[in-house]
Simulated assay, not measured.
Amino acid sequence: MDELIKNYGIIIASSITGVITLLTVAVTQIINSKMQKRQLNHQKEMGYIEHFLDKRTAAILEFRKILEESFSLLDYFHSNKADFERQEILKAEYENPFASPKTQEDIVQESITLTNMTSMFEHGLKQLEPLEEKLIQLDTSFNLLSIYLSEDEEKLFIGVIEDIQQLAHSLISGLRHYKEKGDTQDIYVLKFVHIEEPYRNSLESIRKKLKKVRLITKQYLYIQQLDK
Rank of each mutant, 00 (worst) to 15 (best):
M1Y: 10
E3S: 08
S14P: 00
S14I: 05
S15K: 07
T17K: 01
V25E: 01
A26W: 10
V27S: 11
T28E: 05
Q29S: 01
Q29C: 00
I31A: 13
N32V: 13
S33K: 10
M35H: 07
Q36N: 13
Q43L: 15
K44R: 00
F52K: 12
A58M: 13
A58N: 14
L61C: 15
F63N: 07
K65G: 12
I66T: 15
E68I: 02
F77V: 03
H78L: 15
R86Q: 07
L90M: 15
A92T: 05
E95I: 06
F98Y: 12
A99Q: 09
A99S: 11
T103M: 05
Q104F: 01
Q109V: 01
E110H: 04
E110W: 00
M117G: 02
F121I: 00
K126F: 14
Q127E: 13
E132Q: 13
E133C: 08
K134P: 00
K134N: 11
K134D: 03
L135W: 04
L138R: 02
L138K: 03
L145K: 02
L145Y: 11
Y148N: 11
D152H: 03
D152V: 06
E153L: 02
E153R: 06
L156N: 08
I158G: 05
V160M: 02
D163W: 02
D163Y: 08
Q165K: 13
L167T: 14
A168Y: 15
I172R: 14
Y178D: 04
Y178T: 01
E180G: 03
E180A: 12
T184G: 05
D186A: 14
D186F: 03
I187Q: 02
V189N: 09
V193K: 09
H194Y: 06
H194N: 07
I195E: 06
I195R: 07
E197G: 03
Y199I: 05
R200Y: 10
L203S: 09
I216M: 10
Q219R: 08
Q219T: 08
L221C: 13
Y222V: 00
I223F: 05
